[in-house]
Each structure stands twice: as structure tokens, then as C-alpha cells.
């Protein structure tokens, strides 16, 4: 089971790399924001799997809840700012 969870962790990190390619490469700024949003969803899942791997789910799930709330506020703020500023 430990080996399986380790493989899941490695695969999730590779997937984050794919999103990071989109963030670095993206033609417009909205692509970058979208990639960051996808990375944050992956990071929430990654934190819970890390908790399962170290047998401390009760601690890591609190961290991931806080991360989800903070990230949503940040992403909404960036989207609102871009809505007023537009492409430039």
C-alpha cells in the first residue's frame, strides 16, 4: 500500500509539471491564471495523499481546507483585477 501511495504522489507531481508548462508558456494571462487554478486543485489532493502516506490524515486535512479557502480568495481577487484591467 505504501508503494502504491508513493507512485500516486510521484504521478501527481508529474501532472503538476504539465500544468506548470501551461503557466510558463501560456499565450495570454488568462491561461496562466487557469493553470494556477489547476495546480491548486492538484495541491489539495497532494496534501491529503501525503497525510495518508505518513498516517497523519487528521493534521494534513486541516491544512488542505485552509489552502482551499485561501486559494479561492486569491484566485477571485486576481480574476476581479484582470476584469477591470483587461488585456494589455
Amino acid at each position: 500500500m505504501k508503494t502504491f501511495l508513493f507512485c500516486v504522489l510521484v504521478l501527481l507531481v508529474i501532472l503538476i509539471g504539465a500544468y506548470l508548462y501551461r503557466v510558463l508558456r501560456g499565450p495570454t494571462i488568462f491561461d496562466r491564471v487557469l493553470g494556477l487554478n489547476g495546480i491548486s486543485t492538484k495541491a489539495i489532493i497532494l496534501l491529503i495523499v501525503i497525510g495518508l502516506y505518513f498516517d497523519r490524515v487528521d493534521m494534513f486535512i486541516d491544512i488542505s481546507t485552509g489552502y482551499a479557502l485561501l486559494n479561492s480568495v486569491g484566485a477571485l481577487a486576481v480574476a476581479k483585477y484582470l476584469e477591470q484591467k483587461g488585456l494589455s
Binding site: T28, V33, I44, S72, A75, L76, A79, L82, E83, L87
Partner: peptide, 25 residues
């Protein structure tokens, strides 16, 4: 956490896409 993801993610996606539409893409 799952309920938070299901409530917050559509809102973020909608905000980003609305900004993209208003920017004229």
C-alpha cells in the same frame, strides 16, 4: 473539503472566463 471544492471551483472558473470574455478574446 469535497463540498468546498464543488462550491468554489465553478465560481473561480466563471470569474476567470468572464474576465477573458470582457477582455475581448
Amino acid at each position: 473539503v469535497l463540498a468546498l471544492l464543488y462550491i468554489l471551483n465553478p465560481v473561480i472558473a466563471h470569474a476567470t472566463i468572464r474576465a477573458a470574455v470582457r477582455a475581448g478574446l
